[in-house]
């Protein structure tokens, strides 16, 4: 569905993207994973035909350079932050972009309703919150039922609640068989939405894997914070170490890094050793902070 070959994009003397090749089959959801300056947004902008680039990009068999307009008809795009006609009302915005997509819109309210913007049709874009603007952008992206959805760090400017809502919504879309290409540096977003992850560093693709091996490849996956009474902590540490875990003492208990798909394993081990766990917290990788993807891949 999307075929990127030897993509090169330079800004002055600096190479933002350097020889990246990616194939995305129909129905696949691919995450571009990397830190700031890795080249995620640049690749997306090249796919959209916003930048001049070296190499080739085909969308639905159409060369983006030669048939950009036709290629973009296949794409729904949600940017990191919606730059929009602020004075436009939400329904007017939907109508405007529907026309640009060659559609005749009969009920903008319903299109907005499907992304949770019921009752906001007459609000001006400037009156919408960051999360609402992103949902409006999603409603617009979905106009015309495009087979491809391209998302550029869509949750970057949202709070935790708004982020969860949007990821939930996008996850449904992804499961519906739509082809997706998205940029993210949030682990939970990638694990919820992607089938495949392309890891980027300084404009180069440095790794590629299925989402199931993505978290283990990152190394730290999930962190369990186990609340254990002080008298049992040393024994718990010894027991967990004996089973291949690497716990460390922390305040009221232990911090135990676990692979994402084995979060229950430490509980099982401790239960067998008859050590009680009073409480626990699950800390996701992205919350642990500062995870640099390629450093982790290399380690």
């Amino acid at each position: 569905m999307i075929r990127i070959r030897e993509l090169v994009k330079t800004f002055g003397r600096s190479r933002a993207v350097d020889g990246v090749s990616i194939d995305i089959a129909e129905g696949q959801s691919v995450a571009l994973w990397g830190g700031n300056g890795a080249g995620k947004t640049t690749i997306i902008r090249c796919v959209l035909g916003l930048f001049r680039f070296g190499g080739t990009i085909e969308v639905g068999g159409l060369d983006v350079r030669r048939s950009g307009k036709r290629a973009r008809r296949l794409i729904g795009y949600v940017p990191q932050e919606l730059g929009f006609y602020d004075e436009l009302r939400a329904a007017e915005a939907v109508r405007f972009f529907a026309r640009l997509k060659g559609l005749r819109s009969r009920n903008e309210g319903e299109a907005l309703g499907h992304v949770g913007l019921v009752g906001h049709e007459h609000k001006r874009v400037r009156e919408l919150s960051g999360g609402m603007k992103q949902r409006l952008a999603l409603a617009i992206a979905l106009l015309g039922d495009p087979p491809i959805l391209i998302l550029d760090e869509v949750t970057a400017s949202l709070d935790a609640c708004g982020r969860d809502e949007l990821v939930q919504l996008l996850s449904r879309l992804s499961r519906g068989g739509r082809t997706m290409l998205f940029a993210s540096h949030r682990v939970e977003e990638v694990s919820s939405l992607a089938n495949r992850v392309v890891m980027l560093e300084r404009g180069r693709a440095v790794g590629e894997c299925g989402v199931e091996s993505f978290m283990p490849r990152l190394g730290l996956s999930t962190l369990l914070h186990l609340h254990i009474v002080e008298s049992a902590r040393v024994e718990a540490m010894t027991t967990l170490r004996a089973h291949g875990f690497a716990p460390r003492l922390n305040g009221v208990g232990l911090m135990v890094p676990v692979p994402a798909e084995q979060k229950a394993a430490p509980f099982r081990v401790l239960a067998q050793a008859r050590i009680a766990v009073d409480d626990f917290e699950l800390i996701r990788a992205s919350e642990v902070g500062g995870v640099h993807p390629t450093q982790e891949v290399a380690s």
Binding site: A111, A139, L142, L143, L169, G176
Partner: peptide, 12 residues
């Protein structure tokens, strides 16, 4: 929303 449902539902 599911794939394609927006357009079908809103009549665009």
């Amino acid at each position: 929303i599911g794939s394609g449902s927006v357009m079908a539902a809103c009549g665009v």
